[in-house]
Write a protein that binds this DNA or RNA. Structure first.
Lengths: 201, 201
DNA sequence: ATTGTCATGTGAGCACTGTAAACATACCGG
DNA sequence: CCGGTATGTTTACAGTGCTCACATGACAAT
């Protein structure tokens, strides 16, 4: 009864269908519009307004999904980072997410996003906490919030500058290498062993 | 009437007037459109197309101006950075530019910007060189390109995350302090003296 | 000065967008 | 069965990017 065969008039789960359509369009690089999403979902141009107040609301919903996906990518299938190297790998994941889903990433960050009481703000905050927590884990002696800010910013900047083609285009592997180098340069990681700089573990 | 006393039909320097109008609108947070810019410049809705192939071309022109302004902000009234602290101050300037002219900054970076043979690419490249050069200056022994990438990314990430409200809103001074802290954390700068970590100077 | 050419401005018009309002349909609880 | 409500449709309007045909006037050659 969700996406399956409803009678035709009532869709069943249009909201989800619209979200999916929106994400797909973004990832295929097709121009994103309320009407185009409606078309793709096979409904009338104004049907989406029953589920999203306006275009920005739809975008925010997509962004929230993106935040959850990113968080999943950062946590799924790996333990909490315990070394500086792990942090660098997290950054690799972060940048790779941005490059593989550029339009969504831009929606997540590149927007005005008034801090209206959104789920969006919360999703972003969760991500923030995750990252800060990881840093605190790896560098228990450091000023975790500050270092967390710095490393998140570093990863974020790498992501955006790559997205915008400010660095020479490169294969995913080369990009990953660049990210690792940047973290190396900044953290002076003894990358051979997993140990952190100061006295983690 | 407007810039110089042309007869009215032919404006005299419409291109510059359009650019100025565009920048002003962006900085006042007004919605930006080809037609709105034309209105503001007091010309017909399609006049801009004599000077800019399409909307993206206008945006690119604004972005180029932005790049030049940013470069100026980074170089004007100060010597080439000679210490890690100077680099941090450059980052403060960078972030402060982003926050004081958010719409322009977003145009400069937050866009697709196909690497078509633009002045835009060159303007960005100049900025890149400037930053890399500064880093090479301060850390002659380091892998300058890599460290340059890292520090630019760090500043850029700080700028964007502040822009997007991902960090608690704060006064310009607090933001500046946060930027300095981030650079401190990452460069382990002995900020009292101007000396760098290893052996600069 | 007259003329022709060309850059620059105007106007109407198309396809599209976001969004509001009025209407239609079908599910759901009495 | 019946009425309310959620959901979808139609219609409509203002605004957008952009094209094309036309108007205007600056300038060079005559």
């Amino acid at each position: 009864m969700s996406t399956s065969g409803k009678s035709g008039y009532h869709h069943g789960d249009l909201r989800a269908a619209l979200l999916e359509a929106a994400v797909q369009m973004l990832e295929q690089g097709e121009p994103f519009s309320m009407r185009a999403v409606a078309r793709r979902a096979g409904v009338s141009p104004t049907a989406p307004y029953r589920h999203f107040a306006d275009r920005e609301a739809l975008e925010s919903a997509v962004a929230v999904e993106g935040f959850h996906d990113l968080k999943a990518a950062l946590t799924e299938g790996r333990d909490a980072p315990s070394s500086a190297t792990d942090l660098a790998e997290n950054a690799v994941t972060y940048v790779s997410f941005a490059l593989s889903r550029p339009a969504v990433f831009r929606l997540m960050f590149g927007n005005e996003c008034d801090d209206t009481n959104d789920q969006r703000v919360q999703a972003a905050a969760e991500l923030h906490e995750l990252l800060a927590g990881a840093v605190g884990n790896v560098f228990p002696d450091a000023d975790a919030p500050t270092l967390g800010t710095a490393l998140w910013s570093l990863a974020h900047g790498l992501a955006f500058l790559h997205l915008d083609g400010k660095f020479a285009a490169a294969s995913p592997e080369e990009v990953a290498a660049r990210v690792r180098s940047a973290f190396d340069a900044v953290l002076a990681i003894p990358r051979i062993a997993g140990g952190a700089t100061g006295d983690a573990d």
